[in-house]
Amino acid sequence: METNRSTNKKIFNKFLKLLDEGYDIDTCIEKFSNYREEFKEYIDIIESLGNFKKLKPKEEYLTNNLKNIYSMARIETSKGQKDFLKKEISLIRLRPAYLKPLIVFLSVFIFISFSFAGTVYASSKTIPGDNLYAVKRTYENIQLVFTPYNYEGKLYYTFLNKRLNEADILLQTNSELNLKIAEELIDDIDYSYNKCLEHKYLGIADEGHIKKQINGIKDGFKKRFRKQGADDTIQNNADSLSNELNQNKENIQNQPNQNIQNNQNTQDTQNMQNNNNSHNSQGVQNQQNMETVQNKENSQNIENSTDNSVDSSQQMGQQNQYSKSQGK
């Protein structure tokens, strides 16, 4: 059955080839006379299919349809041209492929710029040592980059005033100052002052006034750090003292006669520590406290320490030696 089918197929294809070459159906059938009956059925089908060739539209329909085709084609071509022009004019509007990344980029850009503006605004009232102070300075630097040389003087003048205000605020606060920050601030003040002079933005009266302010601020810082420096050294020495005393505890216990003196020494050190704490917390009232402490206690070392940190350290050294000798 299968072989019959395949042979039929081959012969049928040969038969079709002959037909393609332009032979009549009768001559083709004659050539394959053994398969006459089978081919007759095939030929009937082919002829039935061939009958559809007679399916033809009327002449009127053809001409009318041609007119329609022309008009439609013209509309389509003009539409195509219009679309092309639109695409030329605005690529963004007509191409969603461009639109999506553009919207994303714009939204991110707007978000970043708004958040940057927000942080810049938030940083406008910061003082050195705050987290956002760096943002403020960066913004100022950016301002400087985009400002023409002629207007830089004005900008430096505003920066100078800002720095002076910051310095005032720093001096007014009671919290402990960082030496590095203060140094940087003073450097900045000097730099902007020099720049103002360079640009000849300051008048004579202004110059004198600002110079006075700067000097005042520098003095303020110096005083503040002198106090802080003294306090630090006192505390350091007091710590070392207490450590040494703890080391000598065993010896002291072995010599009960000298316990009273040791106790006195420890009392002294405790008082000194208390004084130190009061210095750190109260700032301006330090000196008064120290005087009252001095009146109450008989140790001369502490009295010296309030005047000069160097002197105090030396005297604390002497006190150490004294306590050691006592311990022995």
């Binding site: 559809f52 007679k54 399916l55 539209p57 009127e60």
Partner: peptide, 16 residues
């Protein structure tokens, strides 16, 4: 509908 000159004879119509 098509306005086509279809096959003429009745027989052919049926066959088609």
């Amino acid at each position: 509908d098509l306005d086509i000159e279809f096959i003429q004879s009745g027989e052919e119509k049926i066959i088609n």
